[in-house]
């Protein structure tokens, strides 16, 4: 009833199912769950990405405002002249970071598993 090719199709199908299950349920996911906020090189706050809130960090140029939301974070406002860290927008994956160098403030995301040292686009 089952021919040789049928067995190979069944084996292929089982491999597809196993691959999808691994991918969906067991593969390390790189979603971030914590934001690390540094000022002048020292960690000032470590915030879980669960509660929406705004964190203000003072620096040499003024105050940097960091917005935390469910699963993501961004630098909302910063006194730096070129606004690079603000323009980066929302960060959501572990390893992503936004650096506001003139004001010496940085925002970095970490997850359950740190897959990369840093991510930038």
């Amino acid at each position: 009833m089952l021919r040789a090719g049928d067995w190979s199709v069944l084996a292929g199908g089982a491999a597809v199912v196993a691959g999808l299950a691994w991918q969906a349920w067991f593969a390390p996911n790189d979603a971030a769950d914590t934001a690390i906020i540094r000022a002048g090189g020292a960690i000032v706050r470590t915030v879980a990405l669960a509660q929406p809130q705004t964190v203000t960090v003072p620096g040499p140029l003024g105050v940097t405002r960091i917005e935390i939301a469910a699963g993501r974070a961004r630098v909302q406002a910063d006194p730096s002249p070129r606004q690079l860290c603000v323009k980066q927008g929302w960060l959501a994956r572990a390893g992503e970071a936004a650096l506001c160098l003139p004001n010496q403030v940085s925002l970095e995301l970490t997850g359950r598993r740190a897959a990369h040292d840093t991510l930038a686009y």
Binding site: R3, G5, D6, L10, G13, V16
Partner: peptide, 18 residues
């Protein structure tokens, strides 16, 4: 069009289901 000698209805059915 798979060779019928090796691939029976079960192959067709599984592939169609996927």
């Amino acid at each position: 069009h798979l060779p019928e000698r090796h691939f029976g209805p079960v192959s067709l059915s599984v592939l169609a289901a996927f």
